[in-house]
């Protein structure tokens, strides 16, 4: 049993290393990645549930249930895709730590995401044309669109909070890494929605 610890030898010094970083050098980036994996897989499972339940029905949607409308959902998904270059621009400005531009970019993103929330509410309440409690088809539709919508809502909350920080301060170096992370998360939200849009709004409309 040893009561004393092993003697130490100095073998280097890290005091010159930077105290903030971007991309996968930043430890916070990995947390965002972890949550993207979890949430992405959650959406995959919701989609699997959707596809699984279809086997219990002769037609999809079932007899007596209206097909979903594609107008607003197509507007929504187009807007989302169109927003990707903008968020890419925000990410680049964040890497440069350009306070003024990032501040404007985050504000724009916050406004955009609130638009997406409103459109999502419309998609659920109007475009789907079915209630969650009508039958298993309705439940599955609400599950997929609603789960993704929950992620949208959480993203909105984060963006509004980030907007507040950027306007009301104090802004710290790490907030630029956070802004870059949220631009990545934005891409995740949009890209996961595209196949789900097809599954929920286009597939039930195929003859």
């Amino acid at each position: 049993m040893s009561m004393t610890s092993t003697p130490r030898i100095p073998a280097g010094d890290v005091s010159e290393l930077p105290t903030s970083a971007f991309g996968n050098r930043d430890i916070m980036w990995w947390g965002t990645l972890g949550f993207m994996v979890i949430e992405g897989f959650t959406l995959v499972i919701c989609a699997v549930v959707h596809v699984y339940l279809r086997k219990n029905f002769a037609t999809w949607p079932p007899e007596g249930t209206m097909r979903p409308s594609v107008v607003v959902p197509t507007v929504q998904v187009s807007l989302m895709l169109a927003s990707l270059p903008f968020m890419h621009w925000v990410r680049r400005r964040a890497y440069e730590r350009d306070l003024a531009r990032v501040r404007r970019g985050i504000t724009g993103a916050a406004l955009l995401t609130v638009c997406f929330d409103l459109l999502r509410a419309w998609e659920l309440l109007r475009s789907l044309n079915v209630r969650w409690d009508a039958n298993a088809y309705g439940s599955a539709q609400w599950l997929v669109v609603g789960s993704h919508g929950t992620l949208l809502a959480i993203q909105s909350m984060e963006l509004i909070g980030m907007m507040a920080i950027f306007w009301l301060g104090p802004v710290e170096k790490k907030h630029f890494s956070d802004a870059a992370d949220i631009a990545n998360y934005w891409a995740f939200i949009v890209l996961t929605w595209v196949p789900l849009y097809v599954l929920c709004f286009l597939v039930p409309n195929w003859r």
Partner: peptide, 28 residues
């Protein structure tokens, strides 16, 4: 003996971040 690296701050809580594969010190 155990080799160590010095240089993490003592006036605030700071951890060392290293690279994924080879654990080369990268930032604080």
């Amino acid at each position: 003996a155990l080799p160590v690296v010095t240089g993490l701050a003592t006036h605030r809580r700071q951890i060392l971040v290293t690279t994924v594969l080879d654990a080369v010190p990268d930032n604080r």
